[in-house]
Design a protein around this nucleic acid. Structure first.
Length: 440
RNA sequence: GCUCCCUUCGUCUAUCGGUUAGGACGCCAGAUUUUCAAUCUGGAAAGACGGGUUCGAUUCCCGUAGGGAGUACCA
């Protein structure tokens, strides 16, 4: 069975970059009738919080990305210790005692000589007696996985054939000096234990994948198929992380972005398919294929969400909006007619409030100087409320007759006088909904 | 510095050596419309640069430039 996972660390709010990863994995699982796991990577107790974990779940639920299983790494520490021991048993795990400062110094030295800053494995030369002495002196060391210095190759679901020389990568630290298990070990261990078959993540992980493949092989487990999608950049190609603040899922939600609009964009952006509003998640599942994505960095423009959201809102049925309208205080008897009029001019759900304010309170007439006389004439011919669907037509016909004006010159001043705006819903249908007239 | 990936209209992309280089979004124009939107029709718009290979390069190779990523006792 196909098993995918989304593995955020609860150290912040989800943003569009995270969503891309989550969505790809979700779509694959759903398309294959498989399982989608939400895994909270909270091995770092300093930065992980329950609040962020809750927020992540809330954001995913908002989008309808439901998971079949949830795990947290902090619950699985015993298992990681077992895995670590199994690596010690096969002699692929070794303890090191360099301090961060010493490692930093080594790196700088290598860099100066034009060499790659790879750990020199000097700890491998330590005898048991040396290690005892070091432990007595500095406390427990940190543990590195010993890579095989060969080329690591895999066929990536998006990038194609990848080959990385293990010698160009440092032996990864899997356990810190203070005993904390690190991401690489926990992630590999979980993927193996949970039977994850497809790992899709950002291309910032390709080097990790190389080392993880060796660790998985060392654990005698099956290597899942990997795919690395391109990273999102800003409209100018700048790293998105610099402006992630405004691109958190929560902010987008607060701005009125609709889930289906966001999902439609994220599921198709960077692929060869056209970005258009999907009618349902099923549509996105159906058309999804990793092979459609390019590997070049993808520019993300949040402005694209506006039209998609607008289109979605305009297509919302009254039933789907009923609760929102009731909350605004729109009386039930006119709410369907009101929404029918307001929807085509609403970019977000919140816009309904604007139109309702107009209907309920009326608007100060907007009258251009050159139209003053014409508008005054028209006012005199305006029938008293209540108005019906025929009022606008009959009134404008009478005004046309009286003044000789026609077309835009006839209608626009009247629209502005009644609504205070140069644009808005169809006047014929809007008039019966106007509860108040401020035009004296 | 080193390693990996990338570079086609403004944007996302198609093209498995020979195409008028296609589509979508956006943009512009026209039609329609009492406004805006929507819709329809039409239009402008691209192979980073330099070398090769080849009868022929957007496509294959090398180089340059540019972009992204990694190079943590973070994830």
């Amino acid at each position: 069975m196909t098993v995918t996972r989304f593995a955020p660390s609860p150290t912040g709010f989800l943003h569009v970059g995270n969503l891309r990863t989550a969505l790809f994995n979700y779509l694959i699982a759903r398309q294959q009738g498989g399982q989608f796991i939400l895994r909270l990577d909270d091995t770092d107790p300093e930065r992980s919080t329950q609040e962020f974990a809750d927020a992540i779940k809330e954001d995913l639920e908002w989008l309808g990305l439901t998971w079949d299983r949830v795990e947290r790494q902090s619950d699985r520490l015993d298992r990681y210790e077992e895995a670590a021991q199994s690596l010690r048993d096969i002699d692929r795990f070794y303890e090191c005692f360099e301090t961060p400062t010493e490692l930093d110094l080594k790196r700088k030295k290598q860099l100066n000589m034009g060499k790659p800053p790879v750990y020199d494995r000097s700890a491998l030369a330590l005898s048991d007696a040396d290690k005892d002495a070091m432990r007595a002196d500095r406390g427990n060391g940190h543990w590195r996985f010993k890579l095989n210095h060969a080329r690591i190759e895999w066929t990536d679901g998006i990038l194609g054939d990848i080959s990385i020389d293990a010698a160009s990568v440092s032996d990864p630290v899997l356990i810190r000096g203070d005993g904390q298990f690190l991401y690489t070990l926990a992630s590999v261990c979980d993927d193996v234990d949970f039977g994850v078959t497809h790992v899709v993540r950002g291309s910032d992980h390709v080097t990790n994948t190389a080392t993880q493949i060796q660790i998985i092989e060392a654990m005698s487990a099956a290597v899942p198929s990997f795919a690395h999608h391109s990273l999102l950049t800003g409209a100018q190609g700048e790293a998105l992380s610099k402006r992630l603040g405004t691109l958190s899922l929560r902010d987008l939600r607060a701005q009125g972005v609709e889930p289906m609009a966001l999902l439609s964009l994220m599921a198709r952006l960077g692929s060869s398919d056209a970005v258009e509003l999907a009618g349902s998640m099923d549509e996105l599942v159906e058309g999804f294929a990793l092979s459609k994505y390019g590997s070049a960095p993808t520019k993300f423009n949040g402005d694209d969400l506006g039209p998609l959201t607008s289109r979605y809102v305009s297509s919302l049925s009254y039933d789907a909006m009923a609760d929102d309208l009731r909350a605004l205080g729109v009386p039930d008897d006119i709410a369907p007619a009101f929404w029918d009029v307001a929807r085509e001019n609403s970019d977000t759900r919140a816009d309904a409030q604007r139109w309702w304010a107009l209907c309920r309170d009326g608007a100060e007439p907007l009258v251009d100087a050159e139209d003053a006389e014409f508008v005054a004439t028209a006012r005199g011919m305006l029938p008293d409320q209540p108005w019906d669907e025929g009022t606008w037509g009959a009134w404008t016909a009478a005004v046309k007759e009286a003044t000789g004006r026609k077309g835009r010159g006839l209608f626009m001043p009247l629209r502005k006088a009644l609504t205070g705006m140069a644009h808005g819903p169809d006047m014929g249908r809007l008039m019966p909904l106007l509860q108040t007239l401020k035009w004296s």
